[in-house]
Design a protein around this nucleic acid. Structure first.
Lengths: 228, 228
DNA sequence: GTGTGTGAACGACTTCACAGCC
DNA sequence: GGCTGTGAAGTCGTTCACACAC
């Protein structure tokens, strides 16, 4: 079977590189997200520049890694000085697509979904909950934050008539693939799943899975087989 | 700064390999966890054997990967037949350390923690919540599942007097490092953090971080720079 | 014939190390 | 002197391909 693509293309927008494209590794994108978090903190505290060394320290990586990651998108740094904090933040937000608002639906009106929606960074980063769905009749119609829980049977038609960029799946593993098929058919192109199962999607759909069970079991393994 | 170790040693317990040790990649351990999940499903449904092809299909990986992963721990499969479902499940549970009970404390009496504790697989896999802590006076003393929320200032002494294997951190990023230092000093050796920040720990401590913000931003990046 | 086990080949990410610029 | 940018080298995980066992 085809493996899910690990890379996406990044089209630069500097004049001299207008037609070039680069594959950026998923691990790099994750670090960019981290750099951005800390850069914004530095920016707020009034710091003007930051070296690759400082960023590496904050993010738990190496200076060489920081420089390599940032170099994929151009030369932001000044040799001998470091990177301009505010400018780099702005640039990273653009690169990550965080300058725009994304419309999110949450499927599964449980605690995970509300934990996510309540998280400050969620709205701050431009993610907006435009709908919450569940299949449990007891939950349908109830208030949920600023929204009202809707019937999951309305999900597909709602996605067809309203723009939905990202679907968050906070439902049992057994239900996950069915919902995925539904929303992919309706045009959703990105999915964040908390269901502890592997999801099968067409290659152009972006999927991230957060599997808490897997993380815990990873710790169990580490405790059991720790290098003494 | 030292990078966190990516590997742990696994000491085999077959007679002829008693003294050998192998480094198992983190990615392999994650897949073992997935194999186990599906093997238990197959076992319940009464299936006796499963081929690497079948497991790969279920888990979204490749047959070669499955065989390689399992071969690190010995030869379980029968050539021409596949792997014995029940036996392999048992073996994987042992390897992952899931045959024993782990004592878990949850720091931060919010929704993420309760979502985790409510999750069926949590207890089923032998993870037992032995304490819930918060620093918010409004929450301290309130019932929380079968437990009562305790004052976070009691955490360190409780960890010293009771066995705690794993600490789950469901607290704001700004508080995370302080709590980590506290519990590591008190002897906790494994941490699952939901705080969107990088944690600094001594090399012998196992840490997994689940960063939902990072996952969402990864989707934002993919949507923005999708390969057309 | 069917499917495992595994060394070898491959590819991808990380680290090194140094030229180049401030 | 200090720090970035980057080809080259290194490391590690994945895929291949085939001998071998049932």
């Amino acid at each position: 079977m085809p493996r899910r693509h690990k890379f996406v293309k990044y089209f630069t927008n500097t004049p001299d590189m207008a037609l070039s494209s680069k594959r950026i590794a998923e691990s790099t994108v994750r670090r960019l997200s981290m750099y951005l978090r800390y850069l914004e903190g530095l920016d707020e505290s009034g710091q003007k520049t930051a070296s690759s060394d400082e960023l590496a320290q904050l993010c738990g990586t190496t200076p060489a890694q920081v420089r390599k990651d940032l170099s994929f998108f151009g030369s932001f740094g000044k040799r001998g000085l470091g990177y301009p904090v505010h400018e780099l933040s702005t640039r990273l937000r653009d690169i990550m697509g965080l300058s725009q608002a994304w419309q999110v639906v949450i499927v599964g009106a449980g605690k995970i979904g509300s934990a996510l929606a309540e998280y400050r960074g969620f709205r701050q980063r431009g993610f907006k909950v435009v709908g919450v769905y569940d299949k449990n009749p007891d939950k349908i119609g109830r208030p949920w934050g600023e929204a009202t829980v809707q019937n999951i049977s309305d999900l597909a038609s709602d996605v067809l008539t309203h723009r939905v960029d990202i679907a968050v799946l906070a439902i049992p593993a057994d239900d996950a693939q069915d919902v995925v098929d539904l929303i992919v058919a309706a045009g959703v192109r990105a999915i964040l799943s908390f269901a502890p199962t592997s999801l099968h999607v067409p290659p152009h759909i972006a999927v991230k899975t957060v599997n808490m069970a897997m993380e815990l079991e990873g710790l169990s393994y580490a405790l059991t087989n720790r290098g003494d």
